[in-house]
Nucleic acid binder design. Structure first.
Lengths: 159, 159
DNA sequence: GTTGAAAAGGGTCCCGT
DNA sequence: ACGGGACCCTTTTCAAC
């Protein structure tokens, strides 16, 4: 089932719940003018088809001691080592996101550490030993903003 | 109030709820061996001090038609234009994250678009007109994984 | 800061349409 | 696929410890 089979109600529900996972479904129901059971069914459907992958609380990692966030571009020695590198990177707690990329790097990862000193240790003692060609680090010293893509698949937006 | 004032119970609660915003607090209470009211109060406190910034449903954007994700490194013409650039970038729907960075770029942003064609339009028609020196695009053609940092602030982990 | 209980409200399921 | 309703569990509040 693709998103083409989803309708305006699915879209409205998604936009209502995406920024607040704790919103009561009955409130969503009232907003949408349908019953709570309908919302319940729709959300269930959206989870079954994988459009909704889960929910999470958003934590301010800076406030709990992880004051350094960085992106690290990774160059692999050879293409065959992709899977191995990803598997090893996934084992490292501090690595929270990992992408296959085109362009300069082979992989791009996002990491959280307590401070710059820990960043260096992380790279030297955990990331480099995996067996990469080279890495390039980009420290994020401030998150300017973070927001959600408006969900919109029923009518294409005009350019 | 800093994270140093948080205790093992706060830590345990955070680890239990961070990957499931819909978990009943009573279930958390049972896991932690305290009352539901205690969990309720703790979560309230964690929100008040900003450790919990909110909650969200995790959407698979690929499944709703946004098949291209990219990071774009931005070079500004001059340092004074930081704030203006950030303000303008925030207005663009497709830009979902923005960081001040050290290293090669001045800013790093994350964008979601429907396809590569839309990525080009986005850069040429919305991002470049803000008045930047140059941009460098890095397309993520697959998210290898995404996970959460284990929350751990009571005892420092040994290296 | 935590508890237990009470009141209010939401989640879930089943059946009828 | 949706609505109504029943049942049960959860959220939220508050007095008391």
């Amino acid at each position: 089932m693709a998103y083409h089979d989803l309708d305006e109600l699915d879209e409205k529900i998604l936009n209502l719940i995406v920024n607040n996972a704790r919103i009561p479904f009955l409130e969503v129901a009232r907003e949408c003018g349908v019953s709570g059971a309908a919302i319940h069914q729709r959300v269930q459907k959206l989870m079954n088809i994988g459009v909704i992958k889960g929910s999470e609380f958003i934590i301010d990692f800076e406030k709990i001691g992880y004051e350094t966030c960085a992106y690290i571009g990774i160059f692999l020695n050879n293409p065959s080592s992709y899977d191995h590198a990803v598997k090893e990177l996934e084992k490292i707690d501090e690595v929270v996101e990992c992408y296959y990329t085109t362009g300069d790097y082979d992989l791009l990862i996002k990491v959280y550490v307590r401070n710059n000193h820990d960043l260096l240790s992380l790279i030297h003692e955990k990331i480099q030993p995996i067996g990469l060609a080279r890495t390039e680090t980009l420290i994020c010293f401030k998150e300017a903003f973070r927001k959600k893509l408006p969900i919109n698949f029923t009518k294409e937006v005009e350019k």
